[in-house]
Design a protein around this nucleic acid. Structure first.
Length: 283
DNA sequence: TCCCAGGATCCAT
DNA sequence: ATGGATCATGGG
């Protein structure tokens, strides 16, 4: 077992997991078990540090996954000094958030499911998909299910996905998986593309619109010059930025013009802050 | 019972 | 190009 220990001031396990970028994690012991692809780790905060425990061979994977090469102190400072009161508060509360570098395929499926849906239901749908199509794995003597590979989930039918509670999104998922399997898409090749080119490609997927594409860009391709606008962010825009636009595409553009490469980070601070005001997040 | 959730699509204008 | 109805599902 490998332990990675980092400064806890800019790494909060709780805030990183509950800010809405990841759906596969469970409270465990003093912290959380976190799942990505077929891997699992255990993370927790203690005193002034954050600790990641994982299998020896996964050290590099989780080092990248938790974005440990990026200095979040600078990012948080820019949020605090942006001149927007709401960002000063949200940045203070969310300074422990890290933008996870998650798997693109897992993000596409997850955020197709997320549309017009709530987070507890999204988590439930994804768990059911993993337990039906994913491999059974062991971490620290406990069982879990991996996120299925394209090959594994390609046997799924529309009916399968409906049974897992996807509703009308079942068709979207089925269509994407079938097409991806038949054309042998290589998502890691998409990494070379510009953010705009990548977004255009993503939006060609039936069931992927502006917002879902932005989430995949941010969480699956680490494009921090993207800014997903959902119902919560729309509230922030109207109530805290005196926004007047109705078109979400224009709202996205407004924030990207404003924050450039920081847009994605600031979006997470704002989303987490706004949502935590009106919800008991830990459900 | 209605409203809402990390929205996208289809179809009239 | 733009606006509105519609799309499953479960929780509040």
């Amino acid at each position: 077992m490998k332990r990675i220990i980092v400064n806890g001031k800019y790494f909060s396990a709780k805030d990183t997991l509950y800010c809405g970028q990841i759906f596969r994690f469970t409270p465990f012991n003093k912290g959380f078990k976190v799942f990505s692809l077929d891997k699992c780790c255990y993370i927790y905060n203690e005193a002034d540090v954050a600790i990641i425990e994982c299998n020896d061979e996964d050290e590099e994977f989780f080092y990248k996954f938790f974005d440990l090469n990026t200095d979040y102190e600078n990012i948080v400072n820019r949020a605090q000094n942006s001149g927007f009161k709401i960002l000063k508060i949200a940045g203070q509360q969310g300074k422990g958030i890290r933008i996870l570098k998650q798997d693109a395929f897992e993000m596409i499926l997850s955020f197709i499911i997320s549309q017009n849906n709530n987070i507890p239901r999204i988590k439930s749908c994804i768990e059911k998909i993993c337990s039906k199509f994913g491999k059974l794995k062991i971490f620290n003597n406990e069982k879990y299910f991996a996120f299925p590979t394209l090959l594994e989930i390609s046997s799924g039918t529309v009916e399968d996905f409906k049974e897992m509670g996807l509703g009308y999104r079942a068709e979207y998922l089925y269509k994407f998986i079938k097409n991806a399997y038949q054309t042998k898409v290589e998502l890691n090749q998409w990494d070379k593309l510009s953010t705009m080119q990548l977004k255009t490609l993503l939006m060609q997927i039936h069931g992927v619109g502006e917002k879902v594409a932005d989430c995949v860009l941010l969480f699956g391709f680490n494009r921090t010059d993207s800014f997903p606008v959902d119902t919560w962010i729309e509230k922030v825009y109207r109530e805290n930025f005196n926004g007047i636009e109705r078109d979400r595409k224009k709202i996205t553009q407004y924030f990207i013009n404003l924050f450039k490469k920081d847009a994605g980070y600031f979006q997470q601070y704002l989303f987490y802050y706004k949502r935590s005001l009106e919800k008991n997040i830990e459900t």
